[in-house]
Design a protein around this nucleic acid. Sequence first.
DNA 1: GTGTTTTCTGGGAAAAACCCTAGAGCAGAC
DNA 2: GTCTGCTCTAGGGTTTTTCCCAGAAAACAC
Lengths: 239, 239
Amino acid sequence: MTILIADDEERDRSWIKELLEKNLPEQAPFHEVADGQQAVETVLKIKPKLVFLDIKMPALSGIKAAEQILQSIPNTGIIILSNFSDEVYVRQLWKVVPADGVFGYVLKSASNEQVIEAAKAVLGGDCWIHPGISRVIQRTQNRATSLTPAEFEALACIALGLTDSAIARRLYLTEKAVQSRLKSLYSKMAIQGRSEQGDTEHNQRCRAVYMAYKRGLINQSELDEWESRFLENKAGSES
Amino acid sequence: MTILIADDEERDRSWIKELLEKNLPEQAPFHEVADGQQAVETVLKIKPKLVFLDIKMPALSGIKAAEQILQSIPNTGIIILSNFSDEVYVRQLWKVVPADGVFGYVLKSASNEQVIEAAKAVLGGDCWIHPGISRVIQRTQNRATSLTPAEFEALACIALGLTDSAIARRLYLTEKAVQSRLKSLYSKMAIQGRSEQGDTEHNQRCRAVYMAYKRGLINQSELDEWESRFLENKAGSES
DNA sequence: GTGTTTTCTGGGAAAAACCCTAGAGCAGAC
DNA sequence: GTCTGCTCTAGGGTTTTTCCCAGAAAACAC
């Protein structure tokens, strides 16, 4: 009957810990770790009933840590702590968490009451989703606006600043296939092209990137990962 | 002999306040406000020796609040609190702070010691710049890499997803002028074009946006401001 | 004043991005 | 089995962006 807090920032760890000590003293003791790798190891050792996981952590992200934890001990309660309501994380989380899984998603801008509420909910077997991201959740489940893996891949590539032909080389596609992906991407993101009547205000490519940032479909750290993935592939194939 | 803390997040305010109470009790009392407008008003009333200003605040940003404060009471010590090492804020701050001004720039990932160190430095008449952004500061002062206002304006426009012609309309320029701005922007950001030998990997337009996000030259909230500025102009001219 | 930087101008050519239509393979759902 | 949705393919078009050249007006510092 313990709780684990995994966050790389001391400030946030003590924030959560103090809240738990004041409001849920019966759940003590509270353990703390500073990265995802340690989180997984500690969970296997102490088997806590509830784990707070920050998303942005060194060594292993909160999402990946959650995946490993749920594979080993499926009935562990997970509460994701995130700075932003980024759609990309919701997408990833949805794949990792079983359909009937118990979890919470709390933004760091949450009030103290909300954190406690979420903790109680998950301990009691319910889900708790931060109000600010219910809209996002809806979008990830709406057929008309949610992106397929191929479209998402294309989005990441243009956000990195690659040309069509460079994308084609990297993903082993023809240039036409890339353009086909982009076309459906643009239409799903409701970006009007030059053919449509009205103002041809937008460069679709850049506009799609802008909207994607705005919706939290992509962000800096995710793009960095994509880029390093490409660099590895390149180094491997050229040697 | 008081200190003012302006931050919209309760958690961060109490973080700073507790630090000050423990380490600089002789500077008490410590006042708190939750937005930039209140910060300016309170400064005029209580004339604190030191003000902590969060950048992202409702009503008035920390930068703009600093500007107003320094105009009224120039010898007020300012410590900027920021979540990120965004170059755009450093650029703005540099314009606002007098050359011999006393100020600090602290990232929110700073350790407790660093915050105290910064507070003591500014109270003692020195500047304190977070180690993580000294690189950024250098860049903003290097001729070869720092952007001119015109280039910056163009950058913001392409980041919003506008076409060349749309930019020309909005800024009352010819399309050629816009392209000229973009050309110098690309070269300053060291983005190789298609003419250069080697692989033509990159779509310069999108690549520039990516690098700009990465360097913190632009970010979501700044772009939102640019966009709303355009919307106002448009509404005004069309009526 | 001079010199430097910044910005805008022009034309013409090449490359990349976008538009349209249409079909075919392949998975998974029912 | 059929149906649907996703993906890749193909050809041939248009528009936008980028590239090259060079010169001139404007702003600023010294």
